[in-house]
Design a protein around this nucleic acid. Structure first.
Lengths: 117, 117
DNA sequence: TCTATATTTCGTCAACTAACGAAATGAGAA
DNA sequence: TTCTCATTTCGTTAGTTGACGAAATATAGA
């Protein structure tokens, strides 16, 4: 029960859902997500840790960067059902499409340097 | 997006999930649910209205009583995916099993009279 | 009508959440 | 080592949420 509720809580914020939809395009580092969502880095980091604690995404360090990706192989049974469902949802949504275009237009090296102005 | 988040929010409280699992047994009126969950009537009513606003359950008046039931036929696409999944989950969970036994042991007429002591 | 019962709505309070900026941490580069 | 950049953690604040009891609403029955 606790695990299921934690999963739903992680999914019950629009910015976190946007993150999941962006991660469908490709794994992303925190600064890329921060740019697209236009939120403070610390806020994005918190969202990501919530999604990770719910086992919906996983992280991998690469030098200075931490890459987050959808946890499609190893999540619990809740994630195994809900993640694919979410992938089939919201694909017509304007925000989601714009976020994906932003992701595709983003060059990581450039994006992260711009970061804190 | 708003609709999906509303659905997940409705599902991200343990008492509301317990209500859904109880409604798998049969439709229930507010006072029956109140008895099983051991919460104030007003609290249960609020939980039920959240689940209804998310289209996961529907209500039907019958005299003094309002019966709530799972909305398995007419929910939006999110509910169509998630409700059946929830039915397959948590069935081994002790709380859930106890709640269901309470429901089965409950005689509605009696239960509701006891209500406010 | 008046009474009793079921439910919802309202007002309040404590706990939780999402946001921010500042400070701390970690890892590559000079 | 020292500097820089990416990320996390911490402290604060405004807004949300779940709980309650009291009051309002609705319906059945005397």
């Amino acid at each position: 029960m606790r695990e299921l509720v934690k999963t739903f809580k992680a999914l019950s914020d629009p910015n976190r859902v946007r993150i999941l939809k962006m991660l469908e395009v490709r794994p992303l580092c925190v600064c890329e997500i921060t740019q697209v969502l236009n939120l403070a880095t610390s806020t994005v980091s918190k969202h990501l840790s919530l999604l990770r604690d719910a086992d919906l995404i996983s992280d991998q360090k690469d030098g200075k960067w931490v890459y987050y990706k959808l946890n499609q192989t190893a999540p619990h049974e809740y994630g195994q059902t809900i993640l694919p469902a979410i992938q089939s949802w919201l694909n017509e949504e304007k925000n989601v499409q714009e976020d994906r275009l932003s992701v595709l237009a983003t060059c990581r090296e450039e994006a992260c340097k711009i970061q804190d102005k």
